[in-house]
Design a protein around this nucleic acid. Structure first.
Lengths: 241, 241
DNA sequence: AGACTTTTAAATGTCTGACAAATAGAAAAG
DNA sequence: CTTTTCTATTTGTCAGACATTTAAAAGTCT
């Protein structure tokens, strides 16, 4: 592992990249201990603060963890699904909020991905998944619910639908698509009428899933997608006036 | 923005989180300049190196960029699609390589998501997308091609298919699913026969896409998914002996 | 000998102060 | 008015120090 001291890039960025490459390429394996900060400073011919900045970059991506004390140090971290979820959601949220992505585009992506889960979820969903969905539907019918709480419940409902596919990789990918859209969804004001419409579609989805009818789930999701987009268009139109 | 000096967490991690929250919540907007490192050190009552470690954490997630010089400083970065791609791919790759995710699970997720793009891509693909796919098919038929180069071309082919949907959010999400699987795919040895089979399926997909027949694309993708999984099972079986 | 306490060494976390390098704007020179 | 030079600001890097945490080694008592 070498760095170029004459490069225009920051030394800490170069060091971080070198270590990152080593991890991705499997030269450093999970739970392996990196040399101590002082040793690395020697190796790379830089100071300890520079090495530390590099390590903090890696820690921010959950690639390493550090431990203090006698047998401490920096260790290659096993990237867990929850860690990956969290990063994925932050990235997706910012990507959508900072890049003038239209609601339609985001919505289309979300429902396209979600519909990909429908056949698998129909096959494999457990009673648990179904119970979660029913519970969320019930919550969505509470009268005093704020728009935000309604959206939270909506996310939880769709989460259960996705998790029903019993494929952690799929759940991980979808986490970004579904939760990243929440800030956009929160801009919509849900009237009593639109809530009822959504609840009835959710119920239709849950019913179809209970009967394990993939095609019906897919159709209803499509309907829900179109309804959501029409709601968003109404909000935009009102805001334009 | 406040931090708790008595918390067990690192000061730099706390500071990074405080700034990250401010960005996600929209309290800091794109291209806004953060205070200088010295000023932040004062504000948070910590030293400059500690502030710097916090900033490097944020830089690692592409949340900020820094500039040297008189009017320099740290600026909230607009998270670009390419940046988001890169992060997604690193995360997905590591998630798959470190977590004993079965080839079947990853493959299922990948093709489920890809099939979600098929209808959109059938509608919207341009001549360019089709040309890219044809070119990659041609490349896949070169005799001297290494397994790795074959996989690269495979990724490029599927990339074009996904991009054909003309939905950047979908492309971003799929980047992780498709490219993250590459290391797993690279473990497969592609015999001349299996390459021919894959090429013929790719050709069928391109043909169907040319005719804009979504259902045919979907069917062929399903076939390809099953064939890929059967190849992987053969490799596993051979390795077991 | 065995269990408990103390010491010690190694590592990360943090601070201070300094200098280098880049950069934009102000000041000076032509 | 244009070009050059200077200057102030800010990030990048370094060196050395001390604080804190932690596990293992050494020591002590029963």
């Amino acid at each position: 592992m070498k760095i170029d001291p004459n490069s225009s890039a920051d030394l800490s960025a170069q060091i971080a990249q070198a270590i990152r490459d080593a991890i991705v390429d499997g030269k450093l394996i999970v739970d392996e201990r990196l040399p101590s900060e002082a040793e690395m400073a020697d190796q790379f011919n830089v100071s300890r603060p520079t090495v530390r900045e590099a390590l903090k970059r890696l820690a921010a991506q959950s690639l390493i963890r550090t431990q203090r004390g006698a047998t401490g140090g920096a260790f290659v971290n096993r990237l867990s699904f929850p860690d990956a979820y969290a990063q994925q959601i932050t990235t997706s949220t910012l990507l959508l909020s900072m890049n003038a992505v239209s609601f339609d585009t985001a919505c289309e992506a979300r429902y396209a991905l979600e519909r990909a889960c429908a056949p698998l979820s129909s096959q494999r969903r457990t009673a648990d998944h179904l119970a979660t969905m029913r519970a969320e539907i019930h919550r969505q019918q509470q009268p005093g619910l704020t728009d935000e709480a309604f959206c939270d419940s909506d996310v939880a409902f769709h989460r259960a639908l996705v998790d029903g596919a019993q494929n952690p990789v799929l759940s991980y990918q979808l986490a970004g698509a579904v939760e990243g859209m929440q800030p956009l969804m929160n801009m919509i004001t849900f009237t009593a009428r639109s809530r009822n419409q959504i609840v009835s579609l959710h119920t239709a989805i849950a019913d179809a899933l209970e009967r394990r009818e993939a095609a019906a789930v897919d159709d209803t999701l499509k309907e829900l997608s179109e309804y959501t987009q029409s709601l968003a268009r109404d909000v935009m139109a009102k805001r334009a006036r």
